[in-house]
Amino acid sequence: MSTRIIAKPVGPIRRGIADSLPLFIPAIPFTLVFGIVVRDVGVAAWLGWSSSPIIFGGAAQITLLTLLGEGASVVAASTAALIVGARHLLYSVTLAPRFQDQPAWFRWVGSYMLIDQVFALTAVDRQEDPKVFRHYYLAAGTTFWCLWMTFTALGIVLGPKIPSHWQLSFAAPALFMGLLAVTIDRWQKAAVAISAMAFTGLLADLPNRSGLLIGALLAIGLGIILERVRR
């Protein structure tokens, strides 16, 4: 009697969990840098960690806490963190058609889980059943949520254990430089990034870290001009 192993069709929930795990690995350096930032800012651990469930976005959390620690005002730091998170608007536009046939509760809950990785996993339209999409999306989102809550807590615990002479404060700008590099797919974007760095450096002694926002906005303006020229 020959035995043939027939692969059982994997349900959307298990598929959502399995697809999420490898995608979480690149997020691990964020959790360590996050822990170091919370220590450097000098806020209570629970307060720093509360940004994980409230914001649920690593780059925005690190930006916000770093700038507050450097003496930025609440409005300046929050604005900068939201500009860092502006890409979520693009995700929302892109995924909106997939939520057309979904119940209202899922549109509200799904929005909260619309992070980079969940977008990357669900942006490809597989023409699947709305229920399958919903289960897959919720499974992936919940997996990332649990991992992010756990690992940011670990980062806060482990971050302060790292000796300060290791000068890990350089980790935050280094991580963002890496994030910047992967967004560059044409020379116009490189020019915008370099000019943003130059503008921000020139405006570094403006109060409340406003040089950051002015420098970024000037560079985005340059980007729009370059885009007009390109087309």
Binding site: L89, P173, Q188, V192, A193, A196, A216, I220, G223
Partner: peptide
Amino acid sequence: LRALEYVAPAVMGALVISMLT
């Protein structure tokens, strides 16, 4: 949408310098 594409490089660049200030 086009402007949004430049938000990430601009803000990340500004942030890197701000974090070194």
